[in-house]
Structure formats: structure tokens, C-alpha cells
Simulated scan of single mutants.
Amino acid sequence: MRSFGVEEEMLLVDPGSGAAVALAEAVTGGADDAPVAELQREQVETDTAPCATLDELAGQLRARRRAAANAAGRENCQVVALATSPLAVRPSTTPTERYRWMVEEYALTAHEQLTCGCHVHVGVESEDEGVAVLDRIRVWLPVLLAMTANSPFWQGCDSGYASYRQRVWGRWPSAGPTEPFGTPKVYHETVQAMIDSGVLLDEGMIYFDARLSRHYPTVEIRVADVCTASGDAVLLAALVRALVETAAREWRAGDPPLPVRAELLRMASWRASRSGLEGELVHPVMLRPVPAREAVRALLDHVTPVLTELGDHDAAVDLTGRLLDRGNGATGQRRTYGRTGDLSAVVHAAVEQTLRD
């Protein structure tokens, strides 16, 4: 059973107005279990330890969220798992040398980059296996983006997208899908060439949708928006782990990756960020438009044997059914706004849901 863990980026907001507030240094400077700072002072990040089961992961996610909420509460603010701020905000950069360099080099791209993602780490046995996994899961990642899309609002307006975070994040020069690498040698040569170009500061700025972790024996899947409902984050992690194990088995069996170019994957990701679970997605195998439910079902079918072996199948089916019935985070945010006409109410509802079991 492969270990897995989750990193969640979250916004810091004012309890009254719901506006993002620049209090990350104060919130992250307390207890050992406090969250850590990120690029912008209006956000923090939490992470779980490596877990073996969905129940263990769910418990750790809730505990990390509560710890972050407690740390924020001590500074008279709140944490909320939203991928962008519904209310207008002028982000302020965390004052470190690295982040200052990024702001100087990337200008408005860095200034505006207040987005929150959910990253899933899954253990791999070697870099050979890790690269083989990256090459084989790439076609499925847009479906995960659609399922987790949670950023319809940008600077006080409806963007028209389910995941506008994906559009903003895509401005980084290294972000997005990749071509198959084939071997760790090609992967590392590609990364080094990107750094040697002078466009990137270091390997930490390799923002592929999925990459080899720099610090752990894992692959890191970075395509998802942060999920307001912790159950959606658990579902994401379950599907990612099953995708990784399925891909590793395909590699060991000698099955090649699907020959899909990165240009087509960029279009599939655009479609997922635009439509979310409402409307159509690009089918991961047929590469034709299909109803979103059909694309999600294809993903579930693809990983069902592994989910079943791990004992995660029933939970994944149940969580997927709930997600499809109520909609993703973007649908929920728009539903609250349609009922109230108030973006502050959208934030307040998400704050409550962030800490709900």
C-alpha cells in the first residue's frame, strides 16, 4: 500500500468582511503545528504526514485545518479553503529574498498570484517508477481539475470559469502539462535546461501539473484547486493514489503511455477549468467532448481494480456520487452568491465548510 499525503493552501480572511488579510507571518509564527507561509502574506499552507488509509488521511486533514484555524483565530482572522478570493484583493508578498526575486522578475504575474492549490504526494519505489507514473497519469489530470474546481470569482467578479486559479497559475513559464519523459535522465535534463535558461530561479519553480518531489520519494500531483469540503480532498487523494498505482502496474507490464501531445492536454485543462463539472469535458482517452459525468466515470473505471484492492472503492464511489450530486466548489460558491448576492456571504459559508467534518 503506497503512502500518500496532502498539502493544502488556504486564504486568511477578515471575520467580518471576508476580505483577504496579510497576516501570514503572525499566523505561522506560533505553535509547532501552525501552518507555514507562502508567496503571498494572505495565504498559508498545511500538510499532512504520510498516511496509509483514507481514514487516517481524513483525520489528519481535519486536524491540520483545525490547527490552522486556531492559529488564525489568535490573530483575529480566519482560514478558508478557497482557491481564489471572491472579494477584490491586492496581495502583498512575503518578504524573503526568494520571493522578492520572483516579484522583480515576473512582475504582474507574481503580484497577482494569490491562488490556493491542493497537492497530493504518493510514494514511489524509484525515479524510474516515478517518471513512468508521470508519463501515464498526465491524460487523467484535467478530470481531477474539473472535480476540484473551486475558484469562480476573481477580483470581485465572476470569471466565467470554474477554476480561474488554473488560468492564473498557468501564467508561470513552467506551469502546465508536459510531454512524456521516458526516463529519469530525460526528466532531470529537461529540468536542468529550464533552470539553465535563466528564466527560472531554481528547481522549486518547476510547476508541472505533476512532478517528481525534490525532497521526498514521491510524485507530486499539483493540478487541483484546494477543496472547501475536506471530503473532496480525501476523494482527490484516493483517486490520485489509485492512478499512481495503476500507472506503475502498466509500466511494469510494458504498456506504453497514451501518445497524447501536451498541446491537447492544455486544451483539456482549459476545458476543465472553464466548465468544471457543468457541461462537457475532453475524454481522457478518446479526446472528444463528453458530458462531465462520463469523463469522471471513465476515471473511476480506470482505477477501480486498484481502489477495490486497497479497500477504497466504496468510499470513492460514495464521495464521487456526492460530489456529482451537489457540484464542485465552484458550483457551491455560485449557488451561495445567487442566493445572497453577497460575496462576503460566499466567504463566510466557505469558512464554515472548511472546518466541517
Rank of each mutant, 00 (worst) to 15 (best):
V131A: 09
E179F: 02
V168Y: 00
S151P: 08
V133Y: 04
S174E: 06
V143H: 11
R167N: 01
P152G: 05
G156T: 06
R167W: 00
G160K: 13
G176S: 14
W154Y: 13
R167M: 12
L144V: 07
P173T: 11
D135K: 02
V168I: 13
Y161A: 13
M147H: 09
T183F: 09
V131L: 07
C157I: 03
N150A: 05
S159A: 09
W172C: 09
R165Y: 10
G170I: 01
W154P: 04
D158L: 02
P184Y: 10
C157T: 15
G160C: 03
R165K: 15
R136I: 01
A162H: 13
E179M: 14
S159E: 10
R136E: 02
E179G: 02
S159P: 11
D135E: 05
V143I: 15
Q166M: 11
S151M: 05
W140C: 05
I137W: 01
P173K: 10
L141G: 06
R136Y: 01
P142F: 05
T178H: 12
A149Y: 10
W172I: 10
W154N: 05
A162I: 00
A146N: 13
P180L: 13
Q166Y: 11
F181V: 03
Y164A: 00
G160L: 08
A132N: 06
P173C: 07
W169P: 00
A149S: 14
V143R: 04
S163L: 09
S174W: 02
G182I: 06
S151D: 12
G160W: 13
V133H: 04
P177C: 05
Q166F: 09
Y164I: 06
V131I: 15
I137G: 08
R171P: 00
R171V: 01
A175W: 12
P173I: 08
S174K: 08
F181Q: 01
G160M: 06
W172F: 15
V133A: 06
G160I: 04
R171M: 09
I137T: 03
V131M: 08
A146E: 10
S163G: 10
A132D: 13
S151L: 07
P173F: 07
A175E: 12
P177V: 06
Y161M: 13
D135L: 03
V133N: 05
Q155P: 03
N150W: 09
L134N: 12
V168K: 14
T183N: 06
S174V: 00
C157R: 15
V143A: 13
A132F: 03
W172R: 09
T178Q: 15
L141T: 03
A146R: 07
D135I: 02
M147P: 11
G156C: 07
P177F: 02
P177E: 03
W140R: 07
S159W: 08
P142C: 04
W172A: 14
R165N: 11
S151Y: 12
V131T: 08
F153E: 08
E179S: 15
Y164N: 00
V131S: 08
Y164K: 03
I137H: 04
R165A: 02
P142M: 07
T148C: 15
V133E: 06
S163A: 14
P180F: 11
R138H: 04
S174I: 05
A132R: 13
A162F: 00
P184V: 15
L134D: 06
T178E: 14
P173A: 09
D158Y: 08
W169Y: 15
A146V: 12
R138L: 03
P184E: 13
